[in-house]
Computed example of a mutant assay.
Amino acid sequence: MAEEGFPVRRILGILGVSESGYYAWRERTPSARELRHTWLKQIIVDIYSSSGSTFGYRRIRYEIGRRYGINVSHGTVELLMGQAGIHGRSGRLNGHVQPTIARVPNRRWVVDVFTCETSNDTLCAAIVLDTTSRQLVSWSTESRGNSHLVDRALDKAIAHEVAADSIPGEAKGNIAGFAFTDRARNLRCGPAYGITGDWYDHAVVEVFWENVRRALADHKGAKNQKRLEEKLPEIFERFACQK
């Protein structure tokens, strides 16, 4: 109503909402749950559209798991479909709908996990790369590679994309879809099901890691774990800023 030009103070008086409370709500930073729901909602809408507006919440939940390896409850999918104003058609579907990847124009993500060997231990890094611009979207590091390492990197990528929009908590258009590299799967950091990157995705990842190795070679003591933990984020930050 405020966007339509109605006086904010008068609307708040009618609704019984305090003016300070309204502005605090409007400026509030979205929570991690809100960001994830915004991201999932865009995936749901994309799958629904690719099905010819026929899939219900059960089939959409199945497709989210099959395409992206994401485990989400039926209730969450049904809730987000309701918020998006979409619903499935009754009856069984005939034929098979070809999978598509939700994406913003000219962007697709690829997720990789790399183990950096040090003199006394290892350091694992999960990265999310935009394969079209070949830029680093987000990353996370820890001593062992696991699904939580990847989840943190993806959550940061999601938060980055939502925060880039002018309206907090709202994603515009279709967000980037993502695939996992063979290396992430072999390290058991990727889901058993989901999209595997193609030869181009893998080539982009290898070029990125080659640049990282060159940058690390310029730092003495980079083979020491503590030193590596300090320098690797600095290098990632530099690559992320080159946009």
Results as ranks from 00 to 15, higher is better:
V104G: 14
N211C: 15
S51I: 14
G16L: 11
G52N: 06
R108M: 15
G173A: 03
V113R: 00
W199M: 07
S49R: 06
L187A: 00
A84L: 14
L228N: 00
D130Q: 14
A102N: 04
A184S: 08
E161W: 07
R9S: 15
S50W: 15
R227G: 10
Y68N: 14
W25G: 00
E3W: 05
W25Q: 03
C116Y: 02
S147T: 15
I70Y: 06
T54R: 12
R58I: 13
K243F: 04
P30W: 13
T181Y: 00
N94V: 08
V17G: 07
D151Q: 09
N146K: 00
A203S: 08
R107D: 07
T54C: 07
R66H: 03
T115P: 00
S90R: 09
V111A: 11
I101V: 06
R185G: 00
T115A: 05
S140E: 13
A215D: 12
Q135W: 04
K172E: 15
R108S: 08
D201F: 06
Y68C: 09
C116H: 10
R238V: 06
N174H: 05
A164P: 03
H202V: 01
N94W: 11
E142K: 04
T76H: 12
T76A: 09
F180W: 14
G145N: 05
Y23F: 10
V212P: 04
H202E: 15
W209L: 01
A125G: 12
R67Y: 13
M1P: 13
V8F: 08
A102C: 04
R144Q: 15
D151G: 06
G65E: 06
C124K: 02
I86Y: 06
E210I: 05
P105Y: 12
H202R: 05
P168N: 05
L136P: 09
L35Y: 09
I70N: 02
S31T: 11
A192Y: 07
R28T: 09
H74L: 06
T100A: 14
P105G: 01
T38E: 14
P233N: 15
A184I: 04
G16V: 12
G91H: 11
E63S: 10
G190Y: 07
E78K: 14
Y57G: 03
